[in-house]
Design a protein around this nucleic acid. Structure first.
Lengths: 146, 146
DNA sequence: TATTGTTATACTCTATAACTATA
DNA sequence: TATAGTTATAGAGTATAACAATA
């Protein structure tokens, strides 16, 4: 029977290895984790101003300035004028940025297959159920002390 | 039925929230994640030279120099002379460092209880089995392209 | 010759604070 | 007055490369 701490150890190990895999992918694309994270969020949301982007990423506006500077220099995003607010700028993926996001999605799907593709439907459901439980606990835990 | 990508999304969400929780604990102790990681490893291994510590943490010796400098300044570790190799120094936890490591272990046990404590033994086993499968895949995946 | 750890240097991410332009 | 984003500044973690002392 699996003890509580054994499960937490496994969760932490998975977290560590997934982070490592993400970092390697970023490096292989000449990118960094933070920039990949921004591109991922931008692909998810569509064109958006920097302030909501900062909120979504959980960083300060200053940090977004730096990340967008770098991604603009590498040709993955562009800043455009906001239609109604002249203080704000809207960040948009370029075609190179879109192409990267699509590689990211493909890599994601491929990783999912490699990790759980040959797990029986029953075990897959058992895993999903357990993870949902853990996620719910983590959410309430982190909400208590923000 | 849970789709492959749904499970990967959950795994990534758990990874992200566990990392956030770890970072908050570090901050509340006036510490950083990297230093906590070193103390954790040092507590696990016992007194050890810096080179093997760098290998265990997956960073360069230069990085360990910086982390040990900081932890020595804050009184959590000390460098001592290596018994046989005069080039090397052995890093050891001070009593403050040991006390911190014990708080870390207690926090870990508490977190395990909060996350999976009230999961039925059957579901707990299902979760553990699924995580073991994922871990095995991650290990072989990361070993293929080091 | 090879290894341990350091100094030197640089880059990325991150934050806070002050400031500009606009709402 | 409040907000969007920037400049200025600082600190942490990370890396590579050159070097000293020792194996």
């Amino acid at each position: 029977m699996a003890h509580e701490r054994d499960i937490l150890d496994r969760l932490l190990a998975v977290a560590s290895l997934l982070t490592l895999d993400t970092a390697r992918f970023a490096l292989s694309e000449g990118m960094t984790e933070a920039r990949v994270h921004l591109l991922w969020e931008l692909h998810r949301s569509g064109p958006v101003a920097q302030r909501p982007l900062a909120t979504a990423l959980g960083v300060t506006p200053r940090t977004v300035t730096g990340l967008v500077d770098a991604l603009e220099a590498s040709g993955h995003v562009v800043r455009a004028a906001h239609p109604t607010d002249r203080r704000a700028s809207v960040v948009t993926l370029t075609s190179a940025g879109e192409a990267f996001a699509e590689r990211l999605v493909a890599m994601h799907a491929d990783l999912a297959t490699q990790l759980v593709g040959d797990l029986s439907p029953r075990r897959r459901d058992g895993l999903a159920t357990g993870l949902d439980h853990v996620l719910a606990r983590l959410h309430s835990l982190l909400q208590d002390q923000p």
